[in-house]
């Protein structure tokens, strides 16, 4: 079970900035995520979602600001908390020549899992991997690869799970199947999940909070229901378009 106090945010981001030579990717954002919540980070291409997630993971060093995960400052002490978090991203792959079982065994050992074989067996059942557990990872379909990436992300039963477009390029059936597994995992383990997605249906179904980003800043931050009411829209896709095209909230639009 999570080792954190109920009141402490699982992820806290304070005045986070990332400035590259080519320009500003993230321009000073702040938010805190409640433990056990599922939050979406939304925004168009280049909004700063992936950079924000990479800074939370510690893969990218912030230019300014602070990231704290499970009470640990990621800049100072990330290695003390990495075994309690995990991630999935389309920007990384698992070694293709290794079989699914071999990959999961390697990562199981990296994450210090006590009974790696048993855990792989559990995940193979939960995520329906048994059929291709001994097949090279590179020979799997996109949907199968996503399931394997999810298995890797859940290997250590993370308290914090970061997902960058977890259902991108999947057919609707597989995508729905993945969402159900994520809901089940959160319900069973009380994990905090932050996901970046372009799929608004996914966000409406999974997330209790939506952080809308545009050009490196947070444009809005609320529950899906409140965003729909605020913008006077029927679905999040319309809200997304309003924000992306700078149309503002419903009251402003009326004026």
């Amino acid at each position: 079970m999570p080792e954190i106090a109920v009141t402490e945010p699982a992820i806290a981001v304070e005045n986070l900035k990332k400035i590259y030579k080519a320009g500003t990717a993230v321009a000073g954002i702040s938010f805190a995520l409640r433990a056990g919540s599922i939050t979406a980070l939304l925004g168009g291409n280049g909004a700063g979602k992936t950079t924000t997630i990479a800074m939370i993971m510690g893969l990218v060093a912030p230019t300014e600001g602070r990231v704290s995960v499970l009470g640990t400052d990621m800049a100072q002490n990330r290695h003390s908390v990495l075994h309690r978090m995990n991630f999935e991203s389309p920007y990384v792959d698992m070694p293709m020549r290794l079989t699914v079982r071999q990959n999961l065994r390697v990562f199981g050992n990296l994450y210090g899992i006590p009974d790696v074989r048993g855990r792989i067996g559990e995940l193979a059942n939960d995520l329906d991997l048994n059929e291709f557990l001994d097949r090279p990872t590179g020979k799997l379909s996109a949907g199968q690869k996503t399931r394997v990436s999810l298995a890797k992300a859940l290997l250590n039963r993370p308290e914090v799970l970061l997902l960058d477009e977890p259902t991108a390029s999947l057919d609707p059936d597989t995508a729905d199947w993945i969402r159900t597994r994520l809901e089940d995992y959160r319900a069973a383990h009380g994990a905090t999940i932050l996901l970046a997605s372009h799929n608004m249906g996914e966000v409406e179904r999974l997330c209790e909070r939506v952080i809308m980003m545009k050009r490196g800043v947070i444009e809005d931050d609320d529950t899906p229901q409140n965003l729909l009411a605020k913008y006077g829209r029927k679905n999040l896709e319309e809200v997304f378009l309003d924000i992306a095209r700078g149309r503002g909230v419903a009251s402003e639009a009326a004026q």
């Binding site: 510690g58 893969l59 920007y91 990384v92 792959d93 698992m94 293709m96 990296l110």
Partner: peptide
Amino acid sequence: EEMWARNMGNLMMSPLR
């Protein structure tokens, strides 16, 4: 091999020092 496999992000995000 890690760069060719696009696996570096997985490793750098893992507890591996």
